[in-house]
């Protein structure tokens, strides 16, 4: 993990900027979504942060299998926990948004199903970790499951939108697209927000990792 405090402060400032400017900026008025489009600055970065975290955990799982250092396994596990946290936040912001634009908390949408399956897979991962006591065995088995599940998940999320002929999410199906031709002023808020949340995700991961290491040192 990178030393220093500058990137943590940068992440905080970027998010703070996206909160203040994202609420105050003039957004294009689209039918149905209207002002709720501002949720884009908060909802989508959650998924970005989640995927970056799950990717990090995949990298560390592969690293563990080749190095067999328990520290790599610890980071992989904590990255999954952090990713799950962001995934739940993404689900919550998405559900609130859906209630006000599509009229329901949960709709049968390929993106929603994909999100639900990914959260389920990683909850299964934590249950798997909980069911094994021996450290080395737990690390190895969960690393294998992590790689296996992540690969299938990537395929799943890749083919899923193409299978469904309609999606409520923009850019797919026949409704007003916002992601493809995102308004330039919105881009000025969205990208900093995404980068900021990713940095914060790494900070949370760093804190969790250090806490876990301290706990492990205390035990024996």
């Amino acid at each position: 993990m990178i030393k220093g405090i500058w990137w943590k402060v940068a992440g905080l400032l970027l998010i703070l900027y996206s909160i203040i400017y994202g609420i105050l900026v003039e957004v294009p008025v689209l039918p149905v979504i209207h002002q709720t489009i501002r949720n884009l600055f908060f909802h989508v970065p959650m998924w970005f942060a989640m995927f970056i975290m799950l990717g990090t955990s995949l990298v560390y799982s592969i690293k563990y299998l080749s190095s067999l250092k328990l520290k790599d396994d610890l980071i992989a596990a904590q990255a999954v926990n952090t990713g799950l946290f962001f995934g739940l936040l993404g689900l919550m912001t998405g559900m609130i948004w859906a209630k006000f634009t599509w009229g329901d908390f949960w709709t049968n949408d390929p993106q929603l199903n994909g999100a639900a399956v990914s959260v389920m897979a990683y909850l299964a991962y934590s249950i798997l970790r909980g069911s094994i006591d021996e450290k080395a065995l737990r690390a190895r088995v969960s690393a294998v499951y992590n790689i296996f599940a992540f690969m299938l998940l990537v395929i799943f999320l890749g083919i899923l939108p193409r299978l469904a002929d309609s999606s409520l999410h923009p850019g797919k199906g026949g409704n007003s697209s916002t992601m493809g031709d995102l308004d330039p002023t919105m881009r000025m808020v969205f990208y900093p927000a995404a980068i900021g949340w990713i940095l914060i995700a790494f900070w949370i991961l760093d804190i969790r990792k250090r806490k876990r290491i301290l706990e492990l040192q205390q035990q024996p």
Partner: peptide, 20 residues
């Protein structure tokens, strides 16, 4: 089976993998 042959574990781990 390396996690101790738990039948419930099999279902929990299997579903996300099989769904795609």
């Amino acid at each position: 089976s390396s996690a101790g042959n738990n039948a419930a574990l099999m279902a929990v781990l299997g579903f996300p993998v099989v769904i795609p």
